[in-house]
């Protein structure tokens, strides 16, 4: 049986091996030296770890407070309607006419205002509209 041997020390194979390692260096080098740039380009969570303890919530707590005893109203029953600036109702109903009232609500992070209306069971009392900056 006649054996054929490949001679890796031939000029041809030397060029092939050098080109192979050069190509590996080129590809790998780009990946290794530009990791941060790749992360900036990618919005994938897989590509972006975040610092420990980051919050992910899209809502924030706000407290609305009012002292109805300071209001010049004739009615005996007082109703409050509290809205997000987008119009969604956060609270609706009757509150004590003569005592301070406070309520915790949730709004979106980008909300900057709360809107409220106060009205009574007396038709001579005008509905009072107000805005509170957050």
């Amino acid at each position: 049986m006649k054996h054929h041997y490949i001679r890796f020390d031939s000029p041809f194979w030397k060029v092939v091996v050098i080109l192979f390692f050069l190509s590996l260096y080129a590809c790998g080098g780009e990946e290794n030296t530009d990791t941060s740039a790749a992360s900036e380009r990618s919005s994938r969570l897989t590509d972006n770890s975040v610092p420990t303890g980051m919050s992910f919530t899209n809502f924030k707590h706000e407290t609305f407070s009012i002292d109805p005893s300071l209001l010049a109203l004739s009615g005996n029953r007082l109703f409050l309607k509290l809205n997000r600036q987008g119009g969604e109702v956060l609270f609706l109903g009757e509150i004590d006419r003569y005592r301070p009232f406070s309520i915790s609500v949730e709004v979106r992070l980008h909300d900057t205002q709360l809107h409220y209306e106060l009205f009574t069971d007396n038709v001579n009392d005008n509905t009072q509209f107000g805005v509170i900056s957050l």
Binding site: F59, R77, F79, L80, K81, R84, E88, V89, L90, F91, L92, G93, E94, I95, D96, I103, S104, V105, E106, V107, D121
Partner: peptide
């Protein structure tokens, strides 16, 4: 339903409702 008040208008205080995240959300 919002602001449901009792049948008798002179009934005792009814109170209100706080919605999380909102009445329609």
């Amino acid at each position: 339903a919002p602001l449901v008040l009792p049948e008798a208008t002179s009934a005792t205080a009814n109170g209100g409702t706080v919605y999380y995240p909102s009445q329609s959300g």
